[in-house]
Nucleic acid binder design. Structure first.
Length: 287
DNA sequence: CAATCCCCTATGCA
DNA sequence: ATGCATAGGGGAT
């Protein structure tokens, strides 16, 4: 019966273009009519409907098709602002990425911009990842944690990541160690998983929330970066009074609590719709 | 050509 | 304990 109900849900089609162009992923490119993206040790080929084929056929629910969108949209639609954003980008999805690649991507994102993040990640793939051919095209897979944990700081620096090279190596060491089972974080609570993520150097509040939301199924994660703070100041200044420019750890925690109180357990989806809407208003480039 | 701007974290000091 | 200022690639503008 449950299965039947699931199948009967009318699903909003996936908006592949806008989901990829929403600041979540960096190693994607469009070729003719397909999008191709590196997801860890796999390459995904995605058609205009979001149907996925892949090099290794690893099972993935990359666009979170199993989420109950009716329920989620209803849940986050608390006001006109979110409702408008949802109406504008109805097929926008949160991605479910390879966790290690996601970790390195967002460690690199700090004090950077999308163009540079993309270059850095491409350099890492080319230097440390396996070269493969798929659908008559050349790709470089993302190196696994073990390989990056053994790379030298200097080699990593050659990818243009600067002072983040130490963070990357250390993160790779932790992730590849026996004790740290990254997949187990998927079944941990949000706050447990977040505590564990923040042990890794280069990962603070914001980066942890990106990783939790985009790769570890924590849909209440709500990354608060400069842009989101600006958005909250613009549309929600009464609801969440933002006092300072520099948001400290304690303030971040308090603000996140208020946000989850307001938007509910799928707050991360609200974040993605708001973020996409505002960045498009400013005509920011994505890839 | 210098100055400034970027999706932040870690650190040191008050 | 908490707040605040600042350093830290490098590329684009």
């Amino acid at each position: 019966m449950k299965k039947l109900l699931y199948d009967m849900q009318v699903k909003q089609p996936i908006d592949v273009e806008n989901s990829i162009n929403s600041g979540q992923v960096f190693l994607w490119k469009k070729n003719d009519k397909y999008w191709y993206g590196i997801n860890g040790q796999d390459v995904l080929q995605v058609d205009e409907y979001g149907k996925i084929k892949s090099l290794k056929n690893y099972k993935t629910d990359f666009f979170r098709n199993k989420d109950n969108f009716d329920k989620i949209i209803k849940s986050i639609s608390k006001d006109k602002i979110v409702k408008n954003a949802v109406k504008k980008y109805p097929g926008l999805r949160i991605t479910k990425q390879d966790p290690f690649q996601c970790i390195i991507s967002f460690i690199i994102s700090s004090n950077s911009n999308i163009q540079k993040i993309k270059n850095n990640l491409e350099n890492i793939s080319k230097r440390f990842g396996e070269r493969i051919e798929y659908k008559d095209q050349e790709f470089f897979l993302f190196p696994n944690a073990r390989i990056l944990s053994k790379a030298s700081i200097n080699e990593i620096k050659k990818c243009g990541v600067g002072y983040r090279a130490e963070f990357i190596k250390e993160a790779a060491k932790i992730i590849s160690s026996e004790k740290f089972k990254i997949e187990n974080l998927k079944t941990d609570s949000y706050s447990d998983a977040k505590k564990k993520m923040c042990i890794i150097p280069g990962i603070g509040n914001k980066v942890a929330d990106c990783i939790l939301l985009f790769s570890l199924d924590k849909l209440e994660a709500f990354p608060l970066d400069r842009w989101m703070i600006r958005i909250l100041e613009k549309y929600y200044s009464k609801k969440f009074q933002l006092n300072t420019k520099t948001i400290t750890e304690k303030q971040y925690e308090i603000l996140h609590k208020k946000i989850v109180d307001y938007f509910g357990p799928y707050a991360g989806y609200a974040q993605q719709f708001l973020f996409k809407m505002e960045r498009e208003n400013y005509r920011k480039k994505w890839l």
